[in-house]
Design a protein around this nucleic acid. Structure first.
Lengths: 336, 336
DNA sequence: TTGAAAGCGCTAACAA
DNA sequence: TTGTTAGCGCTTTCAA
């Protein structure tokens, strides 16, 4: 149905060989100015576009990168994607976005699919369900460039771009303490995720430093990072029914914060005099609440940009890269 | 760097010809059971994946579709994308998402890029800046399957999936009237967009039907659909400084609704006793406000699914399709 | 039942 | 300066 003209067409039309046309289009020094102009003009006229599949086949690279995130309807990720796009597009790469919806199975399928789609590299933030990363390890060992951001695995040695989660969590928790809350609970994504571990550390550090003890029953995990609202609802309800009911919650994620607020709203408890909330979120909607909600903002756009730069470094490296950094970007506490 | 095994490798290893391997892998009737098993097993063992570029080149299709939306950080679009993905993936298609950020230039670049990336079809919602659609018309005429959703052009004859914008707007406006508001303003995206026109119709219909007159100064357009917050701010401020100040605003979009609320918040006017708001939005965050905000919900997921089904119908059609429908899906008013 | 060869669009080594 | 040819991975016609 949809056919665009090829080098062959141009060659035939101009009575030249395909190689001459190819070289002319690529502005090769071997071609005379006259021929070049002839070819270029005609190509322009018929709106010639090189066939990317042919190019990929020939050059053994697709000039595309794959992204794996939980979901685009999450301000952290949509901002990160904007950062990724900005770098990738400017360097001539297409971006293929896939969503796991926090499912391990979908992560495996997506990664498999991207790899077999012959992307040149992968940008991944692990799903909440993912603890086994052998599907990625395998690809990594076979030489596929991978950069992790946000939720990163321990085991695989490559570039990792993360926010200073511990510090962000520490600041948010400290803020709650300074605001007069002494019984601070913590709701987080699945326990094994890097971000959960780091944010938990920040939370406990802040409590310790302020002479508050840690109550294990104050710490709740939602194994699906808030994708399953029932998990959030159960967590919040359990917290609220504790004998020693917390007076604040530090929530460790964008979706979780919203989920939590929905539960509290439903219970008519969405009010800091009843229970205060502070959480990780990149959504500016928190501004709109009355009273507004303090949140930890991650430099998502910058993280996306940096991750992409690192990935392109790997992809375009002349020699195998063996030295990897772990870049930690600073979060920002929006006190509201 | 990252090489996976090819049919050639398998052929060499098993001492067969590439064509035999190819046929065995495709379970061709011409190949003996023994050879098939041999090949299949070995392929499994070396984790053989067909090279999609070679396939695309050969079959002249890429099994991928391109999406063009304003931005993924918009609940309407992220939900539509989920719908698109659900159908596309189940039918073996990869999806390439691009964002225009409401810019005409970026729309042209993205469309151009997708077309030259040899996607098999395009799913498009026009950018707020787009009034000239010749870049799409051209591709359409050359036979590229295109389905429009949400913001659709008049001129191009193909499948179009839209919400019943007029009715949705009518209901939201009527709701405001029923709630006692008589001076209802309207903030919308750029005036030429199909959704703006349709929503304006619903708005004026509701006013007329209730014996209210239309004040042109009550109707404001933001040419960038809320991407430029200054435009929203100006619009709101102009409305608020009118001698005959409106007591309600019907806002015609997801991002615009949020933008509007930010401005009102800044002016300490985010309160229905001062000025009420009702708008098109697919975000459930509106639930959380006190008092909550009434909104028109579009069946974004369903629209995405339907659009994809129609697109695949076009892509996989044996004969050129010349009969096109315009599917109108019902919105839902969430009275809060 | 299997293999040889051509061709999808493109680039590049080699020849002229 | 331009042309011929081979090959990237795959399918498919034709031949054996």
């Amino acid at each position: 149905m949809f056919e665009s003209s090829t080098i062959k067409d141009i060659a035939r039309a101009l009575n030249l060989s395909t190689s001459t046309v190819s070289r002319a289009l690529r502005d090769s020094y071997e071609i005379s100015a006259g021929t070049k102009k002839l070819v270029m003009d005609y190509a322009q006229q018929v709106n010639y576009r090189p066939n990317p599949n042919a190019l990929s086949l020939k050059e053994r690279r697709s000039k595309s990168i794959g992204i794996v995130v939980s979901e685009v309807a999450n301000h952290y990720f949509s901002q990160a994607i904007n950062g990724i796009e900005s770098i990738a597009n400017s360097r001539g790469y297409t971006v293929i976005i896939t969503q796991t919806h926090e499912s391990f199975e979908r992560e495996k399928t997506n990664v498999q699919h991207l790899a077999s789609r012959s992307v040149d590299g992968l940008l991944i933030s692990l799903s909440a369900e993912t603890s086994d990363v052998s599907h990625l390890e395998q690809l990594h060992q076979r030489g596929l460039p991978i950069v992790f951001f946000d939720r990163v695995p321990e085991r695989i040695d490559t570039f990792k771009i993360i926010a200073d989660n511990a510090k962000g969590a520490y600041e948010a928790t400290s803020h709650l303490i300074r605001s007069g809350h002494l019984k601070i609970a913590h709701i987080s994504s699945s326990a094994h995720l890097s971000i959960s571990i780091e944010r938990l550390t920040g939370y406990t550090d802040a409590l310790h430093e302020n002479g508050l003890s840690i109550h294990p029953e104050y710490i709740k995990n939602c194994p699906h990072g808030g994708m399953i609202q029932d998990e959030v609802e159960t967590a919040v309800k359990e917290l609220l029914s504790l004998k020693n009911r917390p007076d604040a919650i530090f929530v460790a994620g964008d979706r979780l914060t919203m989920g939590c607020m929905h539960v509290l709203k439903k219970l008519n408890m969405l009010n800091p005099t009843k229970i205060a909330i502070a959480g990780f979120s990149n959504s500016d909607v928190l501004d709109l609440f009355n009273p507004p909600i303090t949140s930890v903002f991650q430099p998502a756009f910058d993280m996306g940009q940096l991750a992409t730069e690192k990935l392109l470094e790997l992809i375009e490296a002349k020699f195998p890269v063996t030295e990897f950094e772990r870049n930690i970007l600073q979060t920002r506490l929006f006190i509201r």
